[in-house]
Design a protein around this nucleic acid. Structure first.
Lengths: 244, 244
DNA sequence: CGGTTCATTGATTCGCGTCAATGCAGGTGG
DNA sequence: CCACCTGCATTGACGCGAATCAATGAACCG
């Protein structure tokens, strides 16, 4: 493996690879809309980089030099208040897109939750490529639309749902997401810590923990270990998540 | 003026006009990136519609037939939980864009807050036009990026800020928005009701009201009437909004 | 084995929600 | 012109859900 942090504390990728022939997520990423020739051009400007867990990818307000696709692992996007309060905006999984193509500065910070491999494009070069590959821009607009919808759902959650409703919603989203990727819908993986879940749902660690045990005692979920949840009563969880 | 609601309760536009030569918001809307010839094509598929206050524009989950630009008035976007809890996702002002171009169903509901005039495009026809006018799609991607950033800021507010911080943030955003449109930054207009502010900030009417009077007593704002706020101590409000 | 990190659980506090009353402006009809 | 409504905003009293503070457990690791 490689360097994770330079002598000056500046984060740098752990490792840099190069190709995308056997890319595991190609059909889920921005490349899916391109034919072979176009893909070759895109590959020309892409680099695969690897980050260690907890490595910062970029910080809010800094110049957005790259735009990336997650290939492996999960990435946490968040914003901070000056006193340290944190709001996690999302957890990105393989296939997810990082960095708005057209904005020259990042609106939030990002760090690797697990070991992360990403396919990275220099933002400016990608942008120039839009002129020749309108399909690429179309695809990004599609992705942006999905993100907006997800953000709106999250605003409903943060503004109006109770702790129980938030956690139930969270578990179901993870479960559906896993199913959509061909993974089992039920033992749901939680690659993040309780504090991350809390910061994502606008709750404290303690409330997250208490709500987990409450669900467990009610027979709605099983907690085989800290990072897995079995959904035992999916329908009841769904009712809870919708606020009934 | 025209019909506001048909006999069957189906909402229909109050009035329909036609041109966009003296459009007040052209440079702020999606049209700004087009030259005269392109604009003529776009105009060909556009209609100006007017809605009365409280008229519903569309409902979550329904088919997205149009995509529009607000010309005049303000629009409220929101989501509901089955028991009636409401989260307002945003207030749209002249120049703002309604409806993600690429999604065939609406992810939220919308209604007119005031009298509203909008420039409306049939979604499918607009989409077809993308092929010839890539600049249009580029502009939409830009708009989507701004919306994502705003949504992220709002998630921070809803998940982590206190009532005071939320209201201060809200007033400042409105003030900056007004200034950016060449209006005075200080007596801020509140075209929406207290309950709308509450549903936008994830608070109750009462908390919004109490926080207003708290700010007023502290000399931070003035409340000449129910729908206007004078920002007397902008810097202090800014400190509060950032969480200090 | 002690140290570190994270999760759980309990006791208590507190900010905001809930419930209820009052105020206030605009509109309508007598 | 006034009495009365209606819709909103304000204010107060009280309660609750989640935060805070604090202790204990559990897993992992050098």
């Amino acid at each position: 493996m490689g360097i994770v942090t330079s002598a000056m504390g500046v984060p740098v990728p752990m490792a840099i690879e190069s190709h995308c022939d056997e890319c595991a997520i190609r059909e889920a990423s921005i490349c899916e809309v391109l034919d072979a020739a176009q893909l070759a051009r895109l590959r020309g400007i892409s680099t695969v980089v690897t980050y260690a867990p907890n490595a910062p990818l970029f910080e809010e307000g800094s110049e957005a030099q790259h735009v990336s696709n997650v290939i492996e692992g999960t990435v946490t996007l968040y914003k901070l208040l000056p006193d340290g309060r944190r709001q996690i905006l999302g957890f990105l999984y393989p296939g997810d897109f990082v960095g708005l193509a057209l904005d020259p500065t990042y609106g939030c910070s990002a760090e690797a939750t697990t070991v992360v491999r990403m396919c990275r494009f220099p933002r400016e070069r990608l942008e120039k490529m839009f002129k020749d590959l309108p399909a690429l821009e179309h695809r990004l607009l599609e992705i942006a639309g999905n993100e907006i919808k997800a953000a709106q759902e999250q605003m409903l959650l943060l503004g109006r749902k109770t702790a129980r409703e938030r956690l139930a919603s969270f578990l179901l989203v993870l479960s559906r997401r896993a199913a959509a990727r061909g993974r089992p819908a039920s033992p749901v993986d939680l690659p993040m810590r309780r504090s991350d879940i809390g910061d994502y749902l606008g709750l404290t660690i303690e409330t997250v923990s208490r709500t987990f045990t409450q669900f467990k005692k009610a027979g709605l979920i099983g907690l085989p270990n800290q990072s897995q949840v079995t959904l035992l009563q999916r329908e009841i969880l769904e009712t809870i998540a919708e606020g009934n």
